[in-house]
Design a binder for these strands. Structure first.
Lengths: 335, 335
DNA sequence: TACCGTTATTTTAACGTTAAAATAACCTTA
DNA sequence: TAAGGTTATTTTAACGTTAAAATAACGGTA
């Protein structure tokens, strides 16, 4: 049941080289106190045994891990994929010595809390980027107290550093696109509600509501649980025929799902209904018709998050970095 | 520079509860040796201090981590996303107490080696699923010796457990689709060559070659470095006009990129050229025209890999589990 | 009341590393 | 040649946990 444990340790190398384990430790990190002669012996012994340091033991005493942790709701989201592209490229270019590990919350809040606590308590990483829903204030406070760099993709989170793309502006772009196109019975697709508003990106819904009402139209709201292709596709069946424009604030993937659902249902886009997505994922340009969408500079945002982590890591007194990116509207066939 | 370290430990809880640290340890894991009375005191003390166990220290002595590690080339690949969906769902349903972490190799072989060694040596996980390129034989041997369950997505790897989808059959389905449609100047898009064949999934290329030659046509081969949308798109420009059929063995994402490239170039699919992809990703049904593709049951494969890990974990003498899945051809607009 | 067998708890020793303190070895210099 | 100062290496003590061994406390029996 329990795994085998027979990898060579510092002590094994030490015994073979005829020195103490501390000498091996120092020799391996090229400490100037060790003579070239003994270092040679140590290196040879380490090589012949195939010694690899145990990072767990190391982390316990050093309190540094050489690891950047990502916490995301799911490993398989396309939205996160583009952020990850930026994060990975920044790490590869600027911090190649760091390991990148990703934790999945499975979208469950309790699990998310558990993961953050575990990372903090077990010091599993030197810095954390959170792609998932922002954790509870108590977790954020814990990060603050631990002085561990913590960056999340959300706006104006008290006590944390963040990177965000202006949702109000994005919603404005999307709503105008629909209203200008003459929609008089528009709807919005959002994540499911909590406390009277969508549980993620409520600002998009707020702006859409306001602008519609300002223009004298009363908009529909359609909530979905999972923000993916198939839930978009099945939602399409539940949208009344009189709706003539949809702002899919839940993201491009859902919008692409809607597109597929509408096609099955015989609703023509953009003739019968205009559709605007959100995110600007690559694939949104490939569907038929092309999806008009509010594009976020996801790769740049990912890179920025990494940069924040490392500036916080090098001088941790400067807390609370943040940056708001601007979205743009990509007009395509669906409007 | 170094992080703060002030989370409460077993000793802190012990002091507050007026018992020894071992008692706390036992009480927290509900050991029957501890009286309900002292357990109560301990639990109360632990709660009031907000005690969370340090998994690093725990892992050092227990040699069990409650973690399943995934090693992938990149966090952002769509192919892996569907595998991950299966892996995540299996974990969530059958092993919810396990943490799931993912390591990224960035596609570099040296990094991959380093990551595997680190996982093994530092016992970072109880089992490992490798979505990336199979590692070197020496790493595979190390996994074998460590008796740590190790499952990879590749075929017939000596000494490892694996899950694979029959590439020969898949290539056969794709090639026949092109030849039956009357292509007499077909080509294949593969990953870049190493030792005279594509460095990943060489079997697809081999079968395609053979079947084409058997039918009396000499096929083209187009290699690409990165297996993603944009490299597919830019490859399109380099494909000669006389080519009338492409088997994109490099995957749907590349095929979708090709589609976009062909559209820009004014090549009509399927009139001027027929295109068959590989993988059967969701998005391949949404592009215009719909992509004919060889579908792998990726989610099922992911689930199977998880199941292998846990059967190996419970009785580690039975080594070398494997399963070959069958692909199917999804015929759509591109042929 | 002295002895034994339970049961409840504590003490001690690991796990594999790093950091600090201690020692040993070797040169200078007086 | 004894004292002092480097330099090279070793000893010791952490880090926070679990597991094994040791002890303490208690109740029952002879």
């Amino acid at each position: 049941m329990t795994g085998a444990r027979f990898d060579p340790t510092l002590h094994d190398v030490a015994r073979l080289a005829g020195v103490s384990h501390t000498t091996v430790s120092l020799a391996l990190k090229n400490d100037s106190r060790i003579t070239p002669n003994t270092r040679g012996k140590v290196l040879e012994a380490a090589r012949s045994l195939g010694y690899v340091p145990n990072e767990t033991a190391r982390g316990l005493v050093r309190y540094r891990t050489g690891t950047l942790a990502l916490v995301s709701d799911s490993f398989s989201s396309a939205y996160e994929a583009e952020l990850l592209r930026g994060i990975e490229s920044a790490m590869r270019h600027n911090h190649p010595e760091f390991a990148l590990v990703q934790y999945s919350t499975g979208g469950r809040e309790a699990r998310s809390e558990e993961i953050h606590r575990r990372i903090l308590r077990s010091n599993a990483a030197d810095a954390v980027i959170c792609l998932a829903e922002p954790p509870s204030p108590s977790v954020i406070l814990a990060y603050q107290q631990s002085q561990k760099p913590f960056v999340l993709f959300a706006e104006n989170v008290e006590g944390a550093s963040w990177v965000h793309c202006d949702g109000k502006l994005g919603a404005q772009l999307a709503t105008h696109a629909l209203l200008e196109a003459g929609c008089y019975n528009p709807g919005i697709v959002t994540s499911s509600f909590q406390n009277g508003q969508p549980h993620c990106d409520p600002e998009r819904w707020g702006v859409f509501q306001k602008l519609c009402l300002d223009s004298g139209v009363v908009p529909h709201t359609f909530e979905i649980e999972l923000l993916d292709f198939s839930s978009g596709k099945s939602l399409a069946a539940r949208i009344p025929r009189e709706v003539d424009g949809i702002f899919c604030a839940a993201g491009d993937l859902v919008a692409i799902g809607l597109l597929a659902g509408f096609r099955e249902k015989g609703i023509q886009v953009p003739q019968d209904l205009k559709l605007v997505g959100y995110d600007g994922l690559d694939v949104s340009s490939l569907v038929s018709p092309g999806l008009t969408t509010v594009a976020q500079p996801l790769e740049d945002m990912g890179r920025q998050a990494v940069q924040f982590c490392f500036s916080l890591l090098s001088n941790f007194e400067s807390s609370g970095l943040s940056r708001l990116f601007e979205p743009i509207l990509l007009r395509r066939g669906s409007t």
